[in-house]
């Protein structure tokens, strides 16, 4: 399948910004299942973008304003070829072998970033019992599928109740949120059960009626022994497939924020973005 994706972000400032530097993490990555064939990024300041790879290996676009401004928009147009990899091989390893790997010390050291809690994903002990835990005779893939359902059912999808700073403990009472919150909570539980889990940001096929498709979406990937990293989308109660175009992953939202900026200004600002994904 081929996708044409356009991402458009728009920042408006009521007072002039004297100094500004922005970073965008919006370009889809190349991996086994997807290939970026062409891409183009334009910005309204007409600054020459600078690209570098972050600590997880994802391409960041940095725009540094060389003169004062009160508006910045950035447009990315990208074409991505996407194919689907079956996940049946995830079940090739028997349950015991999976558990042995998850308990292996060297494995835990190598995966430590995705096993540690972070400020976003730290769930207090009193809330642990609310979610199922991995049983000794349970295949991790089956467990994660079950957890995906649990998390999906736990929430009522509700925009504008939470924000980018919301932590998992706040979600327990709210039971409402958006994709970022679903992802953080499932990451927290997977990690509690010693399954490496990472936060993923990306785009969704807009022709399917999925929740969160109008903007950049968030889901997670868990490490299933024998199968590798498998994507789960608790918001839509799905496993990722050719309808998911991945941009980046990290420990939590902070590593994947699509836009970051350091600016010198005071007063109000409005930030928004639009996403259009055409499947061909």
């Amino acid at each position: 399948m081929e996708y044409k994706i356009s991402y458009h972000s728009h920042n408006q400032y009521f007072n002039t910004v004297k100094d500004g530097i922005f970073e965008f993490l919006v370009l889809p990555e190349n991996n086994e299942d997807q290939l970026v064939s062409t891409w183009k990024i334009k910005n309204s300041l007409l600054e020459e973008p600078f690209y570098y790879f972050n600590i997880f290996g994802f391409r960041v676009c940095r725009i540094k304003a060389s003169k004062p401004f009160s508006e910045l928009s950035l447009e990315m147009k990208v074409k991505v070829q996407k194919n689907t990899r079956g996940i049946t091989n995830g079940l090739l390893w028997d349950t015991q072998k999976c558990h042995d790997l998850l308990q292996d010390d060297i494995f835990k050291i190598d995966q430590h970033l995705f096993l540690q809690t972070t400020p976003f994903t730290s769930l207090s002990e009193t809330n642990h019992h609310l979610f199922p835990s991995l049983q000794a005779d349970q295949h991790p893939y089956k467990y994660l599928s079950h957890l995906n359902t649990t998390i999906h059912q736990f929430f009522t999808y509700t925009p504008n109740i939470t924000d980018v700073h919301t932590k998992v403990n706040d979600l327990i009472e709210l039971k409402k949120g958006v994709c970022q919150d679903y992802a953080h909570l499932m990451i927290a539980i997977a990690r509690l059960n010693q399954i490496p889990a990472r936060y993923v940001s990306g785009f969704l096929n807009q022709g399917k009626g999925y929740l969160g498709a109008a903007k950049m979406h968030a889901w997670l990937e868990c490490y299933v022994p024998g199968a590798g990293w498998i994507g789960f989308d608790p918001t839509n109660h799905l496993k990722t497939d050719e309808n998911y175009i991945k941009v980046a992953h990290g420990c939590d939202y902070k590593d994947c924020a699509p836009i970051k900026g350091v600016i010198k200004t005071n007063g109000k600002q409005i930030t928004d973005h639009e996403v259009v994904v055409h499947a061909q």
Partner: peptide, 26 residues
């Protein structure tokens, strides 16, 4: 991370250090 893999230094202790900084990895 050889010192962890050789079990000379406890893994949990290291990763729970406030000042362990993932931006220095690799």
């Amino acid at each position: 991370k050889k010192i962890l893999k050789d079990k000379v230094f406890p893994t949990d202790l290291l990763f729970s250090c406030e000042f362990y900084n993932k931006h220095m990895l690799n």
